[in-house]
Write a protein that binds this DNA or RNA. Structure first.
Length: 310
DNA sequence: TATATTGTTACACC
DNA sequence: TGGTGTAACAATAT
């Protein structure tokens, strides 16, 4: 499940691999997953926004200038000034193969990375968009659930996108410090929602989903059930103190492959090995031995240690 | 076959 | 009315 560290992992790898490559052709197998213009792609009833021919013609022939990130959105900048926004949602994947790798593994099934890699068939059942480059390299976009999207916008449209405008600060920015965080808390500290849901709210601070919010709250010693309005200043300080370290650890481990997340070479991220609570329901707490519990908050499963988190 | 899954948004409510 | 909280939605594996 791609959250900030997983998206950052993909973005760093793609930027390195795709920069200055030129798109020779594009294949779209799932028209509903692509769009042109600043439209709400998730509204699948608006069939007319899925203009596949336009999408393909606008991209073909372009050089990729850079691949960056805002929150969990991946941002491709093309030489014709257009911007492609990609959201991986739950199960989106980018897998890249250069010509050398293709020639080496002539099989239809490719074990892309010998270390901790799932067997990947390319293109597979869930490959929805394929980018072919002029040098023979290929980029596959896979998505088991088809919740993700690829959206092409102009720079002007990009600057006006409402989903980006409502994003809170990037937690790993140097400017995101304790004072900035506590000032943000002033705006929301009377809310009746749970701290868990608050941390996952991208209009507060971006990038933290179910995995990292659980891990941060565990280390901060704050129960996910707690109402935002009940938190003391020290609780907020504790939470802040763990946001950057845990997200950074996730990036160092190349993400957490609890769901279907893979890196751009098809291999798994290693962050799952360092989880203290997420996916640990029924196991002993690594700190105190108490059995990790789980509860539903806002329809989402939250895992926590009843002893370490108050 | 019912259920679980998540980021985002539409909508109901006070 | 505007801010807040909740439910619905996308599609698939199990």
């Amino acid at each position: 499940m791609p959250e900030l560290p997983e998206v950052e992992t993909v973005v760093r790898e793609l930027n390195k691999k795709l920069k200055n490559r030129i798109i020779k052709s594009v294949v779209v197998n799932a028209p509903k997953m692509v769009a042109v213009g600043p439209v709400t792609v998730s509204n699948r009833r608006e069939e007319k926004v899925h203009d596949v021919k336009k999408f393909i013609s606008l991209i073909t022939g372009n050089k990729i200038l850079s691949v960056t990130r805002r929150s969990k959105l991946i941002i491709f900048e093309f030489s014709n000034q257009l911007i492609m926004l990609v959201h991986l949602k739950m199960t989106g994947q980018f897998i890249f193969e250069d010509l050398k790798l293709k020639q080496k593994t002539n099989s239809h099934y490719r074990l892309l990375n010998k270390l901790s890699a799932p067997l990947v068939k390319l293109p597979g059942k869930h490959t929805h968009v394929i980018f072919h480059f002029t040098d023979g390299a290929t980029l596959y976009f896979n998505d088991i659930r088809k919740f993700g999207y690829l959206k092409l916008v102009t720079r002007k449209e990009f600057n006006e996108l409402k989903e980006i405008k409502q994003y809170g600060p990037e937690p790993l920015d140097k400017s995101f410090n304790l004072d900035v965080f506590l000032a943000l808390v002033e705006n929301i500290n009377k809310r009746k929602t749970s701290i868990k849901q608050m941390i996952m709210d991208n209009s507060f601070v971006v990038g933290m989903g179910n995995i990292y919010s659980d891990e941060i709250l565990f280390q901060a010693g704050v129960s996910p059930i707690r109402k935002v309005s009940s938190l003391k200043k020290q609780d907020w300080k504790n939470i802040f103190n763990w946001i950057k370290p845990i997200l950074q650890k996730g990036i160092e481990a190349k993400g957490s492959s609890v769901g279907d997340f893979v890196r751009t070479d098809g291999s798994w991220g290693q962050m799952g090995k360092f989880h203290f609570v997420y996916g640990c329901k029924g196991k002993e707490c690594k700190k105190c031995g108490t059995i990790i519990k789980s509860i539903k908050l806002g329809g989402r499963t939250s895992c926590f240690c009843p002893s370490c988190q108050k």
